[in-house]
């Protein structure tokens, strides 16, 4: 095996895999947030959007074919991202736990000198993974978080995502979980977007301010958009379709 396929062997190569898979996932969260804004245009626009996702590339591509390509790509990105993170974390733990005072507390008086977000990547990422699982079971499959018969599955190519979202965000615990995760997603993006450029070697002192700005912009746009959906439903700005 040669070339880029050998990247997985070194720590820096694993980081490159993390950065590239992260790039795909950043693109996804931006698109996901943008698409969901159609909720504010009413039930018809939002339900048509859900149906339209299956028809991307039609008639060149068959029903939901491109969507499945995207899904498989995203699943691969998630798996690679988590694999790289796990493997690198294990490597780092070996270094930091050696000679440690107790557990992973390396110093008697730990002093942090740089950003908080960088320290939340691991457990923040874990929270986001749990969220993704819950989010799929909740709004995509309708298995959790609904009263019996409340979730409407698609029928004859018609989607009822609008009402599903509205009924899905009636429970304050569920809304709270979504809101907390979005804060951690913001921190993850704030460090991750900048970090992606640093890892790929596309950063230096001239660009770092600009790239930090880009990270803040992406994190803010995604978090504010995503926070608005459950809040809008919960306070009644977006009500059920009749």
């Amino acid at each position: 095996m040669t070339g880029v396929l050998t990247l997985y062997r070194t720590s820096v190569g694993k980081k490159v895999i993390m950065a590239l898979s992260g790039f795909v996932l950043v693109g996804f969260v931006l698109f996901h947030m943008y698409g969901n804004l159609k909720m504010y245009q009413g039930p018809e626009a939002f339900n048509t959007y859900a149906a339209g996702l299956r028809e991307i590339g039609y008639p060149i591509f068959g029903h939901a074919h491109l969507l499945w390509v995207a899904r498989l790509g995203l699943i691969a990105a998630v798996v690679l991202h988590i694999w790289a993170a796990t493997s690198l974390t294990i490597q780092s733990r070996k270094s930091t736990t050696a000679n440690a005072v107790s557990g992973i507390r390396r110093y008697g008086e730990q002093k942090r000198q740089t950003s908080y977000a960088a320290y939340t990547m691991r457990y923040g990422g874990l929270l986001i993974l749990l969220f993704i699982i819950y989010h799929l079971l909740h709004l995509t499959f309708g298995v959790v978080g609904y009263d019996a018969g409340q979730y409407q599955h698609p029928e004859n190519g018609e989607y009822f995502v609008y009402n599903n979202v509205v009924y899905g965000f009636q429970n304050p615990l569920i809304v709270g979980f979504y809101l907390i995760t979005m804060i951690f997603l913001g921190l993850h993006l704030f460090h991750g977007v900048w970090s992606m450029f640093q890892t790929l070697g596309l950063n230096n002192a001239n660009y770092t301010g600009l790239l930090r700005g880009l990270a803040i912009l992406i994190a803010t746009v995604v978090v504010l958009g995503n926070l608005s959906f459950p809040i809008a439903v919960f306070v009644g700005l977006v009500g059920p379709a009749v």
Partner: peptide
């Protein structure tokens, strides 16, 4: 360990 671009 592996660098996570923290910057300490």
């Amino acid at each position: 360990g592996n660098c996570t671009n923290i910057g300490e």
